[in-house]
Amino acid sequence: MTTRPAHPAASSIRTTPEGLLWEPSERWVRGRKGDVTVVDSRHPVLVWEPHLPVPQYVFPHADVRTDLLRPAKNPPTGKHTGSRIFYDLDADGEVRDNAAWTFPADDLAGHIAFEWFLRTDTGLDHWYEEDEEIFIHPRDPHKRVDALPSSRHVRVEIDGQLVADTRDPVLLFETSLPTRYYLPREDVRLDLFDATDHSTGCPYKGTAEYWSWRGEGEVPPNILWSYAAPLPAVEAVQGRVAFFNEAVDITLDGERLDRPDTPFSRMLRKGRS
């Protein structure tokens, strides 16, 4: 999760009166439900809604199997920036409610959007940009994710107890998020944590596994994570572990860092309650 993207003024992004940002994409995008290709487009459009930090695609009608769409039986209200026209998807022997919709913006007339199954309980199963499968949401072309090996000194404490100390971190810089410090496992007191069955997916990094603090104190669950098989762009973090800066005390080169306030802060507080 990120804050709303800060796009360069000279970019091709345009704004609708409804507050949507949109930009044509040159990527070949396909979406499948089971064995059925529902979307096959070489002219997708990226759309940012005012209340969502990540983009989504909309597609020209001609690039969508509209014969598989039915007017929604129970369309939602107050979802997707004023959208009132929703569709149920009937494909591969299953009906998924409210899997697609249209935005009311004139600029996006003739285009259809789809939910992504891994973000909700509806939508399509698999998405591809060119021949690479992508997950959770489309990747933002205005966002960077860089994983850089470093020799900086990183210490992590929880309730005053030292749980990690290393001079061999990998710093992960991701647009609109605080720097994350990926640490060698041998420099982390993993004996103080228990593995959980929680996992998350990221279109930039891959699938993460989690650990929770075994000790006392008001510490949220799933505070520590790792990517066993990260995507190639961040291969340097493979097998390393990182903490939520929002919930632990990190000292970098002798300077105690402030805990950042991010959308993850609210998620962590909710998990602790």
Rank of each mutant, 00 (worst) to 15 (best):
R4L: 10
R4H: 14
I13R: 15
T15I: 00
E18G: 14
W22N: 04
E23P: 09
S25K: 04
V29A: 01
V29D: 11
K33G: 10
V36A: 12
V38I: 12
D40I: 10
R42L: 05
L46Y: 09
L46N: 11
V58H: 04
F59R: 10
P60D: 06
P60T: 02
H61T: 06
A72R: 13
G82A: 12
F86N: 06
F86V: 00
A91H: 06
W101S: 09
D106W: 08
L108P: 03
A109R: 15
A109L: 11
H111T: 13
E115S: 14
W116E: 07
Y128F: 15
E129P: 00
D131S: 12
I134G: 08
H137R: 07
D140G: 09
K143W: 06
R152F: 00
H153Y: 03
H153P: 10
V154H: 05
R155F: 04
D159N: 14
G160L: 01
G160N: 03
L162Q: 15
V163I: 14
T166Y: 06
T166M: 12
E174C: 11
R180T: 00
D187Y: 01
R189I: 07
D191S: 13
H198D: 09
T200H: 05
Y204E: 08
K205Q: 06
G206I: 05
Y210V: 04
E218M: 11
E218Y: 07
L224D: 03
E235S: 13
A236L: 07
V241Q: 02
A242G: 06
E246I: 06
T251S: 03
D258T: 15
D258P: 04
M267D: 09
S273Y: 11
